[in-house]
Amino acid sequence: MSSEPDDLRKAGRAGSIAPRLLLPCLFPCLGTATCSDLSGPGAGGYVTPELRHLSFHYLETSYPDGGVLSIDGAPADTSFRLRQGQRVPVEIEVSSGDREEVGFYRELCPIQERVPVYDCFSSAVAVHADVHVAYLASHVAAIGGRFTMVFPRGVGGVVAVFDPEDLVRKARRAASWPGVRLVELKSSACPGIALQCRSETRSRLRLPVPVDTGVAVPGDGIVQIRPGDTVTVTYRQPGGGRLEAKRVVP
């Protein structure tokens, strides 16, 4: 065995420290370079812009059980752009005891300004005539979503996902569900290339949060409500003030 290096050197290949020392690093290094995305989660974290508007509304279809609290916010600076991986923290408090800390994301995607916009959280699903969209409830739950709207006669519906990452990929997955005829990304207020409109609305923030009826479980990411509860959504402004929106559960 001890003669191997000499043999190799004679063959003109041995002094090659490179393959021995560096090849093991080759693919891990490249993998790191490939996987790092300058605009990805690595650049994320919480940010707290000044908001001029905060509101929420409740959407319920009962497919599957429970509904969705859709929270909307508008930064005072309309040039504000939330980056991928960034979130704007808001607090949800229910008078019966539940309390959740969640993070706004953008209302409109993608981050590229010149690509047609779509709702960061929602896609529309249409099913074949012999299928009711409720049939897809388990599939919707499997991608971490809920229906926020069901069309008349169950011919389709709007699905909201609670994690906006990979919405397009999830929508493609929905296209392969049994009974699905068509999937579309949900367009928002500024279709086409209405650049002025887009510029103003691209700063908007949104977050759908799942809502169930029942006993409060603080911190589980689901808002538990009961009839008569008061739901309060609070945003702490960077200057120290608070922006609140309240509603009573009927």
Partner: peptide, 13 residues
């Protein structure tokens, strides 16, 4: 050779 590149919104291999 193998390479990886990072663009503003995309990655390439």
């Amino acid at each position: 050779a193998v390479s990886a590149a990072s663009y503003a919104y995309a990655t390439a291999m």
